[in-house]
Design a protein around this nucleic acid. Sequence first.
DNA 1: TTGATATTTGCAAATAAGTTGCATTTGTGA
DNA 2: TCACAAATGCAACTTATTTGCAAATATCAA
Lengths: 140, 140
Amino acid sequence: MITLMNSFRTLLQSSDLKATPARLAVLSFLDNNKSPLDADAIFAHLREEHDEADKATIYRILETFVAKGLLKRLEFGEGKYRYELAGDDHHHLICENCGKIEDISDCNISDLEADIKQKKNFLVKRHSLEFYGLCQNCQR
Amino acid sequence: MITLMNSFRTLLQSSDLKATPARLAVLSFLDNNKSPLDADAIFAHLREEHDEADKATIYRILETFVAKGLLKRLEFGEGKYRYELAGDDHHHLICENCGKIEDISDCNISDLEADIKQKKNFLVKRHSLEFYGLCQNCQR
DNA sequence: TTGATATTTGCAAATAAGTTGCATTTGTGA
DNA sequence: TCACAAATGCAACTTATTTGCAAATATCAA
């Protein structure tokens, strides 16, 4: 735990960000959590953990982290953003019945991106790809 | 023009929806328009065309149309929804510099969806795939 | 063509997500 | 341990969207 927090500290410092309790708590919570979370879930968690932070602060932290590349901001058709730690590229399987969110890696769309440059002369910087359907449990 | 409006009438009727002026105007505007539009753009357009409708009405029309499968609801990382006529499957190229939105078809991810069923036992119903980058003009 | 009626709309108020200005507090390097 | 830029809290605000309810209207049958 101590080492984990230290690694978050280091991460923040190497991004020119001060290691404040709220920032450490946000990183730690997103790290513990498998699925992408929205601002309100993070806010609620910090409150429970007595790492309380104002909602404006949470939003500012998330914005800063996305700008620095520590987090990715995602949309799952809910009318709000979710956030996850930036790591290897992957996409999500979103169950429309129970809301469960799984990861998948190894989507191979770099070929497609090359195609796009070719055909449309559009330079792809990034993409979003999410799948909606039914998870194992909800298929019956 | 008259025939076009009649086809929208027919479309609405076959979806068990009354052909109101606002609904016809929304369909017509989205049909004329190449890129997906948000509720406010539609609202503003109808006002200009003197097909004025309340914003709540616009939102309800859009919601109804999506539910009936006439429209697709999209998100481009803007914190709001955009809508386009449902048609052949395609995805979008969103220019991060000028905001221009182009379409691309023929993305081949049905293979990937089969993979997902295989590996994760997740049943994909639909997906969202959007590309962000620089359009031809904005690359220099 | 006219009524009856269920559907749709307008209006106003409410909610949800996210943002902003500003005074105060706090990490951090000297 | 001090100074100061950076970060936070608070409150007010904006933007996107939703909801309740009464009034208006498209449609269908007579």
